[in-house]
Each structure stands twice: as C-alpha cells, then as structure tokens.
C-alpha cells in the first residue's frame, strides 16, 4: 500500500515540485521564505480552483475552454454592480457571481447534452460569446481600483492564520472536491462516464446529464473565481485572464488528468496547478525573460504529458490483447 502510494503519479509530481523548489532555493534562498511561499500559493489559488472545475469536466471526456471568459464576464458583472450599488453587501455579490458562472456553465452543459455538439466546439463558441458580452456590457471601458468599494477589494486579502482568504477558499474547495469526487455517487459517475460511456449507460447512468452537471459545477467555480480575481487585482476589463483557460487545462494535464477521460485525482489537479504556479513565480525571480518564461512553461507541459503518455501506454497494449482474445 505504501509502495503503491509512493509510486503514484501524485507522489512523483509532489517530489518533482519539492525538487524544483529545492533547486530554486539553492540559488535564491529568499524563494523559500514562508512569506514568499505563501504569496506564491495565493497567486496560484485561482488556478487551483479553476483546475478543479476543469478536472471534473475532463473526467467526463469533455473540455471547457470558456472558463477564463466566464471568469472575466462574471468579474466585470460584479465590478459594475459594485460601482453602481456600492452599498450592496459582498455576500450578495459573491452569490451573483456564482449564479452567473453557474448559468454559463449550464449553457455549455446543455449544448453538449441536448444538441450533442462536441464540447470543444461548444466551449470555443461560448468562450468567444462570453468575451464579446463583456465588451457589450462595459463598452470597452475599464473599471479601476478607485471605482470599487473598499469592502469589495478587501475580502480576498482578509488574512486568517496568516494566509489570505483567497488561499483558504482554494484549500476549502480542494477539500470539498476530494469528498465530492471520491465519496459521492456523482463523483463515481464522472469516472464511469469518462472511463467507458457505453458501460456507464448499461449501468443506468445518464451520460449527458452527468456531463451537464460537471460543466455546471465548473461554471460555478469560474464565476466565484471571477469575483476573487477582479477584487484581488482591483481591475476589470475585457481581456482579464486572457488565455488562462489554457493554463487551467495544462494544470490538469500536468496533474495526470487524462484528456481521454476517466483518469485523474483531485490531488493530482491540485499539484498540477501548484507545479505550474511554482514555475510561473520562480522564473521571474531567477531573472528569465518573459518570453523565455512562456517557452519554459510550455516545455514543462509537454514533458508532463509525455510522461503521462508513457505511463499509460502499457495499459493500451493490454486492452488490445484483450480485444484480440474476444474477436
């Protein structure tokens, strides 16, 4: 049991992260100062939350490319509401953000379920639509820090046990997802639908509905992140988090969530996000140019995917053998 845990993909990834941090610390001891690590974790928190949402979508053999656009649209929406009605309490705004994100996720899910459109096409379309809506809503204007109320900006920074609330939210969602994915029938259905949709149908699981629920949950998390993002960076405009959906997918892939569906764990997605977060935080410290940073992040993604592909190859052969035996 212990050996298997040590050999698991999650453990290898955790080791890789530890080695990475160790290497950086040898050159820049300041990087492992508790404050700096806490900052890096806080920076990575939105990625963690979005990666968890994306993970359950990918588990069901779908993909959601609209998460960053969803985030940006809800962020703009709550920022505009805040500037118009500064007295509106923050919990109401958070509820609005989650509701708006949920609706956008549900739209993705419904199009996939009822119209049977491939998820990559659906979310590529809604990604563009949601971004376009931000422009229509804001008329291209920025909402800057001074227009937002103080309480609006303060919430994610509010510290508790020397970690900002944003970090605690990421931790809480991770824990909730461990229970959801590993301990509820819905979580099991995600794996069944992605692992073998045909067999899931025979077991009485509604594949389309399960995928719809994954999209909806993912949208809800994107909506929540929309508020957190805009309040933390204290700015909202059309292009916030542009291209961030690719980081989210990359975090999942690095974390061992199989794009083919049915394989992956919450801890894996969490660590995948951390891995990407460490790289993104460390490279500027080391003094690598922003362009090289992009290339290095990209290389890390490909290495991680190649690693995953290698570790799952043997399984593929077994399946072939099995089919030969039957045929």
């Amino acid at each position: 049991m212990l050996i298997r845990a040590l050999k698991s993909r999650e453990m290898i990834l955790a080791l890789a992260i530890a080695i990475l941090i160790g290497l950086i610390a040898m050159q820049f001891p300041g990087f492992i100062a508790p404050d700096n690590l806490a900052d890096a974790f806080n920076d990575t928190s939105p990625l963690i939350i979005l990666a968890l949402g994306q993970m359950i979508v990918i588990l069901t053999r779908c993909i959601d490319l609209s998460v960053a656009a969803n985030l940006a649209l809800t962020g703009m929406l709550v920022a505009m509401i805040n500037t118009q009605f500064p007295a509106l309490p923050i919990p109401v705004l958070i509820t609005i953000a989650i509701a708006a994100g949920t609706v956008m996720g549900a739209i993705n899910g419904l199009l996939t379920w009822k119209l049977d459109i491939p998820p990559i096409v659906v979310t590529l379309g809604t990604m563009t639509i949601y971004r376009g809506l931000i422009f229509l809503l804001s008329e291209g204007q920025w909402i800057n820090a001074h227009e937002m109320s103080d309480s609006f900006k303060a919430l994610p920074r509010h510290e508790f046990l020397s970690l900002p609330l944003l970090s605690w939210i990421a931790i809480a969602i991770t824990l909730a997802f461990i229970v959801l994915v590993a301990r509820t029938p819905l979580g099991r259905a995600f794996y069944a639908v992605g692992g073998n949709p045909n067999a899931a149908v025979y077991a009485g699981i509604d594949v389309g509905r399960t995928q719809f629920l994954a999209f909806t949950l993912c949208g809800a998390l994107a909506g929540l992140t929309g508020y957190l993002w805009v309040s933390r960076y204290a700015v909202a405009y059309v292009d916030i988090a542009g291209g961030f959906e690719l980081d989210v997918v990359a975090a999942c892939v690095i974390g061992g969530i199989s794009i083919a569906g049915g394989v992956g764990t919450v801890i894996g997605a969490f660590l995948g996000a951390i891995f990407l977060g460490v790289i993104k935080n460390a490279l500027p410290v080391i003094g690598i140019s922003p362009f090289a940073q992009l290339a290095i992040s990209g290389a890390a993604i490909i290495i991680a995917v190649a690693f995953n592909a290698r570790s799952s190859r043997r399984k593929g052969r077994l399946i072939l053998k099995h089919e030969e035996a039957v045929g």
């Binding site: 794996y191 699981i205 049915g262 099995h322």
Partner: peptide, 18 residues
C-alpha cells in the same frame, strides 16, 4: 470491452456501480 467494464478502474468500483 465496450459495454461491460470500466477497465481502468478497480474491480469493486465496477461491481458496485449500479
């Protein structure tokens, strides 16, 4: 292979699914 098992999950997940 097609309709029966979810082959990359544990035996007991398969058996308990329905």
């Amino acid at each position: 292979g097609h309709h029966g098992t979810i082959s990359n999950t544990p035996i007991f997940h398969n058996v308990s699914l329905p």
